[in-house]
Design a protein around this nucleic acid. Sequence first.
DNA 1: ATAACTTGTGGAACGCGTTCCATGGCAAGA
DNA 2: TCTTGCCATGGAACGCGTTCCACAAGTTAT
Lengths: 310, 310
Amino acid sequence: MATIRDIATRTGVSTSTVSRALNGSGYVAPATKQKIMAAVHDLDYVPSALAQDLSSGSAHNIGVVLPHMDHPYQTQLIKGIMTAAFASKYRVTLLPTAYDDETEVGYLEQLHRNQFDGLIFTSHGLPLSTLAHYQQYGPIVMCEHPETTDLAAVYSQRESTYREVFHWLKAQHADHLALLSYRPESRSATTQATMKAYRSVFNDAKPTTQFLTAVMTYEDGYRVGSQLTSAKYVLTDGDDVAAGVRQYLLDHHLPVPLLIGQENQLTGRLLGISTIDHHFETVGHEAFLMATGKLGKQRRVGIPSEFIIR
Amino acid sequence: MATIRDIATRTGVSTSTVSRALNGSGYVAPATKQKIMAAVHDLDYVPSALAQDLSSGSAHNIGVVLPHMDHPYQTQLIKGIMTAAFASKYRVTLLPTAYDDETEVGYLEQLHRNQFDGLIFTSHGLPLSTLAHYQQYGPIVMCEHPETTDLAAVYSQRESTYREVFHWLKAQHADHLALLSYRPESRSATTQATMKAYRSVFNDAKPTTQFLTAVMTYEDGYRVGSQLTSAKYVLTDGDDVAAGVRQYLLDHHLPVPLLIGQENQLTGRLLGISTIDHHFETVGHEAFLMATGKLGKQRRVGIPSEFIIR
DNA sequence: ATAACTTGTGGAACGCGTTCCATGGCAAGA
DNA sequence: TCTTGCCATGGAACGCGTTCCACAAGTTAT
């Protein structure tokens, strides 16, 4: 591997001159530059990214912390982040946690170690105070609406849309609801937003409602289908889940309730299931900009979400 | 940011001793080690990943070159790679190309620059000879079966499964086939394998067959549905595409042909569409091992794929 | 003609850990 | 007692590019 010193020696100039010639900074005589470029070409020299990173103190790398690789909610978000990163000189590293707190701490430590310039959290297992503590080492951006104001965040304005959904249900005097989510209210901002909207809309005239958790995939939906035989309205975390519920009920010749999915996935479109589009691609895009400081001092960005009735 | 020198000064030892204490290499007196650990704790010291990378000459980073973020084919592959990387100390960086050759060259240059220890190609736009040329800078692993033997590869053994599919079709005297793929034969190993199997099975008794390209998504499938009104058997690149074709025909009250998808996606299961599972998660896993040199000198691994009739 | 620039280039320090080599103390074996 | 050999630690070089500072030569302004 040729180094900048090799170029310097071969050309008979100093490394500073080579560096200046390569970066176009400072003064270099045209003739010198030509000689340098020739040597660079001859020796197949390319500056080491490792050395440049150390020198600049940044790895030009943003980490994206996510629970699973296969949760549909992530796909659009990641796409938005990647598209934005692609346009700048940054790279993006995907960091799956499998909801393991130690792993999550590991990534935060890597922020401390300058492995990452910033972290984007699509979901988190650790307490927010822990995350806030690590902010001293670099920007941390949440993709959920955190209760505390200590953390920067770009999030879908779920709650107002959930209220819209519940108002819509209320208007048709809906009863026998079922709310399916992946994580319990205590551990998930999404579930919290859902419940908050639910309580505020129905207030003291709550319909009969089932609450199920640990439901994330099509299979999960199919699995809990047996518990939903008396439900008339079902709101799920993703369209895939709704599809699973529907399939179970169809397979057992049971009536299919009115299904409302989320994420506007293909399955929902395919089966004509109403959905909520949280515009996660936009969320991801903005989160990247915030993590790289391109959004100025702004630390809070809400993206409106959309209720699609089918 | 505290450095190893800060620790050394504060403890009254040399940086070498601190380094040894931290890494557990070489001799360090227990008392010295304790003092060092105390200082490390007091100063909130963490070794800089940037400096370690430069010193070790490796970023512990594997890049995954892929065309799009949303091609279903990638999801499982990436999952397999990530799972394997997660178990080791490596990180994985996703590198989308949008089939732009310049971008692809950019990533190869980053391999040269030691930004990556190795690259995994899930798809490629550049000629194989170009890729082979960059092997001198680090391991490059293809996830397709390349024609040349110059490149290391982990791939799904598509061709034999395609032959199985065509034999199955031949056995029922299938006629009016349609083969839908994303990229033309000249630019895609997948399409090449399909065509090779097609020719070898039907030989000179080829059925009437339509060939369509540039079909990748559900929407694409729906779009080309109008051209498939006389097809009796349709083989597509992914189950989503098959679902699109099916939907178009249903919407227009036209007969739905026998559909065979690929990738064993949820949509296929949902709609009872036969499919081919290429076991891409396994492919990804093995590709990672090969890229990090954990597979020894092996440069060729084939993973059997599976025809699932529904 | 002299001060004040501008241009071109080199030297050395810096960023931060790792590692090879050397040195010194001390105990066990010959 | 002398030689090995283990233990503990320091010094310095290394990996590689960047950047500040200084210096020299040539140019322009005063």
